[in-house]
Amino acid sequence: MTTNAPRFWRCIPQRYNLKGTHCKSCNEFFFPPRNICPNCRRVADIEEYKFKGLGTVITHTTIYTATEDFARQTPYNLAIIQLDEGPRVTGQMVSCSEVKIGMRVKPVFRILGKEGDKGIIYYGTKFAPVEEAGSHSENIDKEII
């Protein structure tokens, strides 16, 4: 992840937390934040919103061949997660040997990458499985499919 420090720095609120936006006109939630609502555009009423963080795995893969920045981490699991408020995000899955569609997950704060041994360390969000009381992952699974 070379020479990306400014791009990372300016997004730290979203990298370190799931902070996005919510359009009060159409009630859609956005992560990363959008300041132009694709439904309402000019008549949107946008507010900041911090996501609760819980979500469900929609689909996933295990990456064996990565770009240079991630080559040392292979194999690793990547998933698309639907947050409970609606928006979907892409993120790495940790703390589980097997990822499954429908799995309930929560965000965890992790190192995303480093600029070599002496360079900047990039932190951000990955996802880990969560056990919920009366887990309804079976039902969620049916909704997705």
């Binding site: 992840m1 990306n4 990372f8 990363p32 689909t59 996933h60 893969t61 990456i63 061949t65 990565a66 770009t67 991630f70 981490q73 690793y76 990547l78 998933a79 698309i80 995000v89 892409t90 993120g91 790495q92 569609i101 995303l112 990458g113 990039y122 951000g124």
Partner: peptide
């Protein structure tokens, strides 16, 4: 919001395939 988090091009199509 994809590549910085570890996505590769094949990975995106792999997730569609899955």
């Amino acid at each position: 919001w994809e590549c910085f988090l570890g996505a590769t091009f094949p990975a995106l199509y792999a997730m569609m395939a899955r």
